[in-house]
Amino acid sequence: MTVLFYISACIAVLATAMVITRTRAVHALLYLIVSLLAVALIFFTLGAPFVAALEVIIYAGAIMVLFVFVIMMLNLGAQAAKQEAEWLKLGTWAGPTGLCGALAVELIYMLTSEQERLSAVAVVTPKEVGMALFGQYVIGVELASMLLLAGLIGAYHLGRPHRH
């Protein structure tokens, strides 16, 4: 189990180093998604399956989709089709796909050796997290909802088209 942690950690560091050294935003985004998936797997090995799922759904899903939308909006132009053809080349997606494949092998290994895993690591279940979130930390939940509302209004205000 600890070996899986170290493999995931190496993948996360490698993918993050690739994120900050790429010249094209979409390439960096692919590596950033790999990095987030590796961190999700690390959460799973640490006995935190609930936040591992949240990391995949919210970080690698929702937030990265926002980035993809914005990058695609900024890239509209004559050379968009040419870029599209270039992105389909093997060199672009071979790196992220290889790292994702390593993560998938780890995940399959983990799921097939479920019994040893449960006995080795103390798992904090989603039920406990929910009880703490809506019991002890309920004021934080309220504040987070206000923060999200402020973010929503701010994004709407900034994203409005200019009226001249």
């Binding site: 919210i58 970080y59 926002l66 987070a144 999200l148 973010g151 929503l152 701010g154 994004a155 900034l158």
Partner: peptide
């Protein structure tokens, strides 16, 4: 939650 709010405002600023 904070990251989601930050990135929505940040990307609106990018645009």
């Amino acid at each position: 939650t904070m990251a989601a709010a930050e990135v929505s405002v940040g990307l609106a600023l990018v645009l």
